[in-house]
Design a protein around this nucleic acid. Sequence first.
DNA 1: CGGTCGCGTTAATGCGCATTACCTAATGCG
DNA 2: CGCATTAGGTAATGCGCATTAACGCGACCG
Lengths: 369, 369
Amino acid sequence: MVAKEATGRAKPGRAPAPPGRRGRPRQAEVARLAGVSQATVSLVLSGRDLATGRPISAETRGKVLDAARSLGYVPDPAASRLAAARNNLLGVFSFTATFPTDVRHSYYPFLVGVEQEAAAQGYDLVLFTGSSSGGAGASGAGALNRVRLADGCLFLGRHAPADELRRLVADDFPVVHVGRPDDAEGLAWVGADYVSASREVVTTLAGLGHRRVVLVREDDEAPASTDRERGFLDGLSASGLPAGPDAVFRSGDLRRDLTADRVSAWLAEGVTAFVAEETDTGTAWRALRAAVDAAGLDCPGRVSLALLGSPPADLADEPAPMGFDIPRPTLGAEAVRLLAARVAGEPARGTLVACAFRPGTTAAPPAGP
Amino acid sequence: MVAKEATGRAKPGRAPAPPGRRGRPRQAEVARLAGVSQATVSLVLSGRDLATGRPISAETRGKVLDAARSLGYVPDPAASRLAAARNNLLGVFSFTATFPTDVRHSYYPFLVGVEQEAAAQGYDLVLFTGSSSGGAGASGAGALNRVRLADGCLFLGRHAPADELRRLVADDFPVVHVGRPDDAEGLAWVGADYVSASREVVTTLAGLGHRRVVLVREDDEAPASTDRERGFLDGLSASGLPAGPDAVFRSGDLRRDLTADRVSAWLAEGVTAFVAEETDTGTAWRALRAAVDAAGLDCPGRVSLALLGSPPADLADEPAPMGFDIPRPTLGAEAVRLLAARVAGEPARGTLVACAFRPGTTAAPPAGP
DNA sequence: CGGTCGCGTTAATGCGCATTACCTAATGCG
DNA sequence: CGCATTAGGTAATGCGCATTAACGCGACCG
């Protein structure tokens, strides 16, 4: 029967019992007590017998269950996961440092959705911090490799090192980027639908009676900016309003260029509403408000204002501007759903999540002439 | 050399490559690439060669390290742990559901500290989702077991299933509870020092000239409540003020019992300041404010008020009450520090974290007679 | 110049569980 | 009654890593 005592070697490999494992009973002990084999214990306890048409007699089941209960058996997750070749872990990698307050405002609401959906899908979360030299890997090159310990990973933040990310994607490691990337080559992503949301803001203004609206934006080319502009222009067209180049005011230094005089001039030309893009610093919105205030204009009595996004945290007390909010929890949940699909083998794709329109109190029908 | 093809059996046990592991390189592959054995790879990567006086030549080290880097190797946490080692993962298990807004306010600030300190100590975090049917285990019995995958785990929330937690502790699994538990039997914990903070509030009031102060509290026996009362009474004694039983007003229904008349009566007796305990709902503070308002008393002109904690989120706009804030990030960081120590083998202990005194605008010297 | 170290490396082994090939007995079927 | 099934269970195997006895090979000693 047994026949391999060929080598008379001793037995190496015996490791000292690690903490947390001490007197814990194993399946083998349950098996001995129940008078069956370890394999049977595994089958019964995992319920795999019923599922896979591999019936175990009720009597045996009972004996095993009793034995397990009386010994207080609990499965070792490490062993389970090792044997099952999957660890039920989803990574969340954030490039932005954790400290800045402005990030926390977007990161944690997002995390709420991630957490909820991950739990629903049966995954636990591993948080990788881009800053600091966390975990095994340093922060330099190869830092992203840490995430391979999970079954898949979410990436947040604009400053993702493209090459390293590409490497992961090339290795077929399931990855989902949060925020539409510049170059979505084979990369799965979820993003907010700025185009539709911006369009809705504009059509709503048009519905209030505004015939000339101006968009105020910074001078960059981020997808987030161009999407908003596109939505803005779409909205104008859809409302039958002129969507020419003078409907957009673009400047690299809004604080300097967006003056009270400029605003007054627009009013004289028939402009009755202004729309600011959202940026992480809220520059456009601040400049717009400042200029309108300086011009002594009442809002929404004299001019209507809207913000294509949420106001910066420090302006949370002021009256809510018309605009839209990014449903961060939803975004997080959608990201997890997509990632789970990737892990399950589905191909990469991009997904847009609708934003929530916010009526606010800064818009009203235009004043009479 | 080889000699055990004795049994002509086929090879069972081969699991089909499941999703989620795909191209993840293993030590064996690194070994092949480097032209050494898997054991050598393990020795080099774990740095165990230097530590245990088992030197590996610099040349071999280099080859292994290069191979590992180029393959993007990361150890499998489950395998590491199974083989009696660490995986540089710390768990965070929260019992309270994550959704309720009131929880987010305390959970995420705490997480900020945890994250930062974990990164500093070289750990990554695993978020075990307590709510919902998370991870491998259901939410029922044995749900806590998932945490054994990590090297240790933080537990948040009051509703920790004592028996399961006890089991982990009994198995010598490193655990740190956040919040002083009712029964700290062998359990490591971190908590806020309500006693000292409450005392400071009282002595500050006394320093302003108040000679009679009343504490308003609900009728329960949570450590958080009794600690505050103790600190309150300590503060009175330390200031040479009467700390008799009539210095504490205790009621199961403050909204009903704490009336304007009652407050007026206290004033007539010479009371010039009131202190409310903090609860999750802010009941005591709300009731106190309502009564003072109803009595038409100016604060801090006529009476001084203080809150032994932070005001509830919905009252964040109102003037800040004198009191103290729980330094949640610090608490989180301290929890991680303690957990890391436990993982390293140090014995369990409890730790108190000092709260930050908040002057606020609701306290002033007592009005003249 | 044979024997011994010392050093570097490898082969073998097990952690606890899941999986599956195979085995035995009881039963069905023509 | 002989053979094919089915039911019920077991033995063997491997997941990926850490550990350690043993091995090979020069250097060094006597």
